[in-house]
Amino acid sequence: MQKEKILSLLRLIEQNSGLSELDLSIMLDVETQAIHDAISALEKEGVICGYHTLIHWDKITDNDVTALVELRVTPQGGDGYEKLAEKIKEYPQVKTLYLMSGAYDFLVMVTGQNMKEIALFVSGKLASINEVQNTTTHFILTKYKELGFDLEAKKADERMVVIP
């Protein structure tokens, strides 16, 4: 499949991973078998890392809290960042981990049932790692947009206008 078509395929899957291979083949004007083969190859190469459903948990439960934690670290040795990342990403509370440029080294997204649970995790686990110099925790109050999706999108009023 052409690189252009593969990029279009990836964009479609990223936007809606629930599209069937038939839907994708129609949208891209490509044989269904070619879509199947391309997806299989992209999964095998690690380009497609998994399929994710974005859920607006705030509409379902009040028991989940998300925080962004900035970590400033002093890595040891040539692969110090990688060793630290391996250690940090093993915690189940860690949902996302990025190595950053700028004022801090890592950005860690963590979840917990409440602020206290996250605070105890940060102080007891993350801050206790020898290479961690300091942490700054930011609690997420409201999510407006996530992964390109507007979480607060208003549905169009579909009521019929009745004129007397």
Score class of each variant (00 low, 15 high):
Val110Asp: 01
Gln93Pro: 00
Val73Lys: 12
Ala67Lys: 12
Thr66Pro: 06
Gly102Phe: 10
His52Tyr: 13
Arg72Trp: 14
Ile35Tyr: 01
Thr66Ser: 12
Gln93Met: 10
Leu71Gln: 05
Thr74His: 14
Ala41Ile: 09
Asp64Arg: 12
Lys116Tyr: 00
Val110Glu: 03
Ile55Met: 11
Ile55Ser: 08
Asn63Gln: 13
Pro75Phe: 08
Asp37Pro: 00
Leu42Glu: 04
Gly112Asn: 10
Tyr104Thr: 12
Lys83Arg: 13
Gly46Cys: 06
Val108Asp: 02
Val108Gln: 01
Pro92Ile: 10
Val69Met: 06
Leu107Thr: 03
Gly80Phe: 00
Lys83Tyr: 12
Leu54Ile: 10
Thr111Pro: 00
Asp58Asn: 14
Thr111Glu: 10
Lys89Ile: 09
Lys44Trp: 03
Ala38Pro: 01
Tyr91Ile: 02
Gly50Met: 11
Leu99Ala: 05
Val73Met: 08
Glu86Gly: 06
Asn63Asp: 08
Pro75Glu: 08
Trp57Asp: 15
Glu70Ala: 14
Ile39Pro: 06
Asp58Phe: 15
Pro75Met: 09
Asn114Ala: 00
Ala85Tyr: 06
Gln113Cys: 04
Met115Arg: 12
Tyr104Met: 11
Lys44Phe: 01
Gln76Asp: 15
Leu42Gln: 07
Ala34Cys: 09
Lys89Met: 10
Asp79Gln: 11
Ala67Trp: 05
Ile55Tyr: 14
Gly46Asp: 07
His56Pro: 07
Ala38Gly: 02
His52Cys: 08
Val65His: 10
Ala34Gly: 04
Tyr91Lys: 13
Tyr98His: 11
Gly102Gln: 06
Gln76Thr: 15
Phe106Ile: 14
Asp62Cys: 05
Tyr98Trp: 07
Gln93Cys: 06
Tyr104Ser: 13
Asn63Ile: 02
Tyr81Ser: 01
Gly77His: 12
His36Leu: 02
Gly102Met: 04
Val94Cys: 09
Tyr51Glu: 05
Met100Trp: 02
Gly80Ser: 13
Thr96Phe: 04
Thr111Lys: 05
Ser40His: 06
Glu43Ile: 09
